[in-house]
Amino acid sequence: EADPRLIESLSQMLSMGFSDEGGWLTRLLQTKNYDIGAALDTIQY
C-alpha cells in the first residue's frame, strides 16, 4: 500500500499540473522524503 505522505504530496503536485508518467514524480518525491518544496527545487534546476 502506498505511503499516505506520498499520496498527499503526489496529488498536490498533480493538481499543480505535473504528471507522473512513468512514475518519475513518485520516485522523486520518495527521494525527497515527500517534500514538495525540495522536489520543485530539483525540477527547477
Rank of each mutant, 00 (worst) to 15 (best):
E1C: 10
E1N: 13
E1G: 13
A2T: 13
D3M: 05
D3I: 06
D3Q: 06
P4A: 12
R5C: 08
R5N: 08
L6I: 06
L6Y: 08
I7D: 09
I7V: 14
I7L: 14
I7F: 11
I7R: 13
E8Y: 10
E8G: 09
E8R: 10
E8W: 10
S9T: 11
S9K: 06
S9H: 04
L10H: 02
L10V: 07
L10R: 07
S11F: 12
S11P: 03
S11T: 11
Q12N: 09
Q12A: 13
Q12W: 09
Q12V: 15
Q12S: 10
Q12R: 14
M13D: 02
M13Q: 01
M13Y: 01
M13T: 01
M13R: 00
L14A: 11
L14R: 11
L14Q: 09
L14S: 08
S15R: 13
S15F: 06
M16L: 11
M16C: 09
M16G: 03
M16P: 02
G17Y: 02
G17R: 00
F18E: 02
F18V: 03
F18H: 05
F18T: 00
S19G: 09
E21S: 09
E21D: 12
E21P: 05
G22N: 12
G22F: 08
G22A: 07
G23C: 07
G23A: 05
W24C: 09
W24D: 04
W24E: 05
W24Y: 08
W24R: 05
W24S: 04
L25N: 00
L25K: 00
T26P: 02
T26F: 01
R27M: 09
R27T: 08
L28N: 00
L28A: 02
L29T: 00
L29D: 01
Q30W: 06
Q30S: 08
Q30A: 10
Q30P: 03
T31S: 15
T31F: 11
T31N: 13
K32C: 15
N33T: 05
N33E: 10
Y34F: 11
Y34Q: 03
Y34E: 02
D35T: 03
D35S: 08
D35Q: 06
I36L: 08
I36T: 07
G37C: 14
G37A: 14
A38M: 09
A38T: 07
A38D: 08
A39G: 02
A39C: 09
L40P: 00
D41T: 12
D41M: 12
D41F: 12
T42L: 10
T42W: 15
T42N: 08
I43A: 03
I43M: 07
I43Y: 04
Q44T: 08
Y45E: 15
Y45C: 15
Y45F: 14
